[in-house]
Amino acid sequence: MRIDLFIFLTLCVILLFSCSETEHVDKSVETIDEKVHSKLIFEKTKIEIKNVKRGEVIEGIYTFKNTGENVLTIEYVNPDCTCTSYEVSSNKVLPGQEGWVKLVLDTKDKLPETRINATVRTNTDQRFHRLVLKASIID
């Protein structure tokens, strides 16, 4: 009886580990190239705002158009500074439709000449797009 119990527990442990292993597989890379790709064109990727009073919160809005034949997916927006937040019009944009990404920068503790970069990851061939928000801050 004791041996049976031991075998049963061992099988449970093996099963548990085999399950957790499959859970750890990250599909993001394996599947990226299988996805249907789209195309997008940003109207502009760099916005510069001059004579910003320190402490002001400024916004840069970057409009784009889905010029592909498939649905455009904005997978994420990743500003390189925690001082900057973002909004997206929609994560899914239909072919021919437009959308926007908004970067919001708090200038309180920034250098007089500040430049924020944000990476936009999409289901396009290019995969990554860079948006730049520059601000000249005056005290």
Partner: peptide, 14 residues
């Protein structure tokens, strides 16, 4: 690589 959280990607903003 390329930015991302996958096992063959680099999970960094910069």
């Amino acid at each position: 690589l390329g930015q991302g959280a996958g096992p063959k990607e680099l999970d960094l903003k910069f």
